[in-house]
Every structure is written in C-alpha cells, then in structure tokens.
C-alpha cells in the first residue's frame, strides 16, 4: 500500500505563496496562493484587471513588477531569484498573449539560438544544425506550420493565429515542464483557436503542467482543465473542478467581485 500511496501523492511543480506584487506603487496581487502539481492543467479565470496577466508575467520574470511579499517556488527552487532566461532553461514557458514581432531575426535562427541557449544553461550538448533542422521539421509538421513561416522574421507579418501557433511550436521544441498560456484565445477566430488548442493538447503529458489564463470559458472547451481558479482583485477567490468554468459562464464574475 505504501507504494500506491506514493503514486497518489503528486509532486508540486509550481508553488505561489501569498504573493504580493506592485506596479508603480499600485498593488496588483494582494497575497495570491496557488499550487500546480506535476502533470496538471489549471485554468485561471477572472475579469479584466483581476491580475491574471500580472501573475503570468511575474512567473516568467518580466521587468517592471515589484514583488513585495511572498514567494514562487518552481521544483522547490526560488524562481524570483532567477533571470527570465534561467527560468526558461529550468522549464518555465510563457506563451505570450501578444507575441512580439522581431524584424530582421529569422525564425529559424531564433529557434536554434534559444533552444541551444537553454540546453547550454542545463549543461546539455547543443544541437547540431542538421539535428536541429530535423527536429523543427518534425514538430512544425505535426502542428501544420508551413516551412515558409520559419524563414520569415520572428512573427513578422504573421496573422494572430500564426503567432499563437508559433508559440505552440516553441513550446513543443523547448519541451518545458510548465506552460503558462496567457489569454491564448485573444484575437483568434474559432478555427484558429481550435488549431492552437489541438497543438497544446498534443503536448499534454504527465510530466508537463499547464496554467491556462483566460477571460472566457470558450477556450476551456478545447483545453479541458483539471482545476479551475477564479481570480478577482489580485487573489484566487474560488477553486474547483472543470465544472466551475461552466458555472462562471452562466452566472458571470460579478458574484466574485463582491466576494473579493
């Protein structure tokens, strides 16, 4: 029985403890606590201004946020002590709500540089060019990404759907253990959303956790979460199973705004 018990006890991958964050003197997160275990998919829902994107930015290490209290542990290590690139090498991946366009940096060059930088930071061998090309080809084929897209500048001239697919491509390539999807559905029509969600679902694995941040329940029809959290005014105000998302869809966020 001891053996079975051990299987049931999931490892905490991400632990956010009583996190307080300020932006320019204004507190956005007022003591947020959240634990994501290995292999779980968590959805974070909430109205605009509830602090969802702030949480994703602070986990990824975006400058401009001041953590005044609390901590974030990733695989037991203090994430806040690390540079954004160190977090990436440890396995944190933020899929941006608005992926930036980088003119003059070819997508292929970017992907290879990033992947090898992460491998180097972990003390792994860097990919040779042929091995890398093979890997990109495999991954992009499985995501229906045309090779032509990879020759262009990073996200330059990409549609909203192409930009999100490029994020999923990177997720597949870098093989992170934690994926944070920040408003992945914003700016996507239903077809583009389905393609991106299919890509994400293909990456579900017992070794990979995901935090899906969204305003709408719609995305969660495609990426079905294990746990749903409701954020309001900088705190998690309610957590539950996937049915909580449906409940929210029916009744809206107003009840929680009062609760917070």
């Amino acid at each position: 029985m001891h053996h079975l018990n051990k299987l049931d006890t999931k490892m905490a991958l991400l632990e956010v403890k009583d996190l307080k964050v300020r932006v320019e003197e204004r507190e956005i997160l007022h003591g947020l606590t959240l634990t994501v275990n290995e292999g779980e998919i968590h959805a974070i829902m909430g109205p605009n201004g509830s602090g969802k994107s702030t949480l994703s930015h602070v986990i990824a290490g975006k400058p401009g946020y001041e953590v005044t209290d609390g901590q974030i542990l990733f695989k037991g290590e203090d994430l806040l002590e690390m540079e954004p690139n160190e977090r990436a090498a440890k396995g944190v991946f933020l899929a941006f709500q608005y992926p930036v366009e980088i003119p003059g940096v070819a997508t292929m060059n970017f992907l290879r540089t990033a992947l090898n930088a992460q491998r180097k930071a972990r003390g792994e061998d860097e990919y040779s060019t042929p091995d890398f090309l093979k890997k990109v080809r495999e991954v992009s084929k499985s995501l229906n990404i045309p090779q032509d897209m990879l020759k262009r500048g990073v996200n330059v001239g990409f549609s909203g759907g192409e930009k999100k697919r490029n994020e999923v491509l990177q997720m597949a390539l870098f093989e992170p253990s934690l994926c944070i999807l920040d408003e992945m559905d914003s700016g996507l029509d239903i077809d583009a959303l389905r393609i991106a969600a299919d890509g994400v679902n293909a990456l579900r694995s017992p070794k990979r956790s995901m935090v899906v941040i969204t305003h709408y329940q719609r995305l969660l029809n495609y990426i079905v979460p294990d746990v749903v959290h409701v954020m309001s005014k900088g705190r998690v105000v309610k957590s539950g199973g996937k049915e909580l998302a449906l409940e929210l869809e029916a009744s809206g966020y107003a009840q929680f705004e009062d609760a917070a």
Binding site: G61, K62, E83, N85, A88, F96, P99, I102, A114, A117
Partner: peptide, 16 residues
C-alpha cells in the same frame, strides 16, 4: 524580454 523568456541571456538577446 521575449528573447530572454525563451532562454537567451541578456547579452545574447541584445546581440540578436
């Protein structure tokens, strides 16, 4: 930040 979030150290991100 985008490049650093993808694993590039500051100087390497700048270089790109």
């Amino acid at each position: 930040f985008y490049l650093k979030a993808r694993g590039l150290p500051e100087k390497q991100a700048q270089a790109l």
